[in-house]
Computed example of a mutant assay.
Amino acid sequence: MAESKVLYLQKVKNQNVSHILHKIWEHEAISRIELVQMTHLTSGTITNLTQELISHRLIKESESISDSVGRKRVNLRFDNSYYYIIGIDIGRTSVSVVLSELTGNIVDTVEYGTEGITNPEEVLALIEPYVHKLLGQAESRKRKVIGIGVSIPGPMDQRTGKLINPPGFPGWAGYPIRPTLEERFKTKVFIEDDARTSALAERWYGIGRDGRDLVFVTMGMGIGGGIVQNGRVLHGTNGLYGQIGQMSLMTHGGAGAAISYDCWENLGSIPGILKRWSGNGDFRDFIVQVRAQEPHAVKVMEDTLRMLEASLTSLINLYDPDVIVLGGKLYPYLSPHMEAIVENVRSRVFDFVQERVIIEKAFYGQMQSLMGAVALVFGHVQENPLLVLGAD
């Protein structure tokens, strides 16, 4: 019974501290008086918990401000002076590593090409010396690496940290990425698929910082999505929530041609576009042909844009987000058409939400999933601060 009471009190403390951290992050800087008003916790609880957060160097007191009667208030904000986060992005053609401060400020980063490498051990061998170097840097600077976040193509088994046959990612099926990295680096590792980490980058460091609902769409060698509702990324029963690339699209070759169905990823990703183009060359050659107004290439691009419009319309109707964020390697080639795409999408949704259709580009661009790996760890700190404070 006593142990159950201790666990209950720890759970309550974790929830209260998490609530405080969320409010500080949402407002960037906030006073204790404002925290009492927003959290409905007592002033004594706020004082005790914020002092503990300060002692663990998770937050700090910042500049004082004066209220209407001239008394000084001390603001609280996140402290960047002690904790580091390491982010790792393992993609289909490259692997990247970043060292970041707690609030997303980049300290160091590196990228290696992995074209043609399908053995996970060979990929990890590229980054292992660099990660050890970053861990050594943190130790020499008397800083603590609070965790390592990994962004990698899914799907995956969150319980075991193993990948489940990710499409277009040969050699990685069943690979125990999380336990392998934890053994090698002796640091807590968090893992998530790259579409969801991209959404988390937006949730914690970008347009979704205030906790708004958003859908992140990443388009490149594949098409994936991350759904954030009430500030949290969603997974679903089998971890398949947000697998938007698997939405079925109807296609036809013109008058009299048979109607066929295929998923958005097979049609609208870079490999799908090249397959429909059937030209000689890679994606850069395709874009050259589009810009030269070669009829077939132009038709393929136009069909790609129509697929994007149809898919975005479906996403709005399915998830009703505050904002849709677009990113990935394909996005820069589609961005010149975004104004027309947004207008077409607005014309297809309910009248009363047309003006609330907001479609934005990813905050971090090509570094989105890498910073998402950092945001993955930061989100765990926000939701489970006793990982930092300890269970005392």
Rank of each mutant, 00 (worst) to 15 (best):
I244V: 07
L240M: 14
V217E: 00
N14H: 04
A373Q: 04
H235T: 14
S260T: 14
P385K: 11
L124I: 03
G206C: 12
L240D: 10
I59G: 07
L308S: 04
S260N: 07
L134Y: 06
T251W: 00
R346V: 08
M301K: 00
N48R: 14
E383V: 12
I341R: 06
L53I: 06
V349E: 08
T304S: 07
N105M: 12
S66I: 08
S248Y: 09
V217G: 09
F378G: 00
Y319A: 11
V298F: 05
N384C: 05
P176A: 07
A310P: 03
L134P: 02
R57E: 12
P321K: 02
G242V: 08
S347P: 05
P332Q: 11
W277R: 03
G254N: 01
E383Y: 13
R92P: 06
G272I: 03
G136F: 04
G224P: 06
S311N: 08
K275Y: 12
R212N: 05
F78H: 02
L274Y: 08
A257S: 15
D303H: 15
E360W: 08
E302N: 13
R356Q: 09
G211L: 09
S260D: 13
L326C: 04
G272D: 05
N344W: 02
V17Y: 05
L389I: 14
D157Y: 08
L163A: 06
V377H: 01
V215M: 13
M219D: 02
L389T: 11
I341E: 04
E115W: 14
H252G: 13
Y364M: 10
H40F: 12
D108T: 09
K133Q: 14
N230M: 10
K13I: 14
G220P: 13
K11C: 11
L267T: 10
Q293P: 01
S269W: 06
G136Q: 15
V215G: 13
N119T: 11
M247H: 01
R346C: 02
S96Q: 11
G254D: 05
I341L: 12
M156G: 10
D193A: 11
A362G: 03
K23C: 07
T304N: 01
A292N: 12
P336Y: 07
M301G: 00
E309S: 07
I117Y: 00
L124P: 03
V36F: 06
K13D: 02
S151V: 01
I324L: 09
N119R: 14
L214M: 10
K11R: 08
P321L: 04
F378A: 14
A29N: 05
H56M: 15
S81P: 06
E34C: 08
I177L: 04
W25G: 07
I191V: 15
N266G: 07
I324H: 05
H27P: 04
V215T: 10
T42I: 09
L240S: 15
I191K: 07
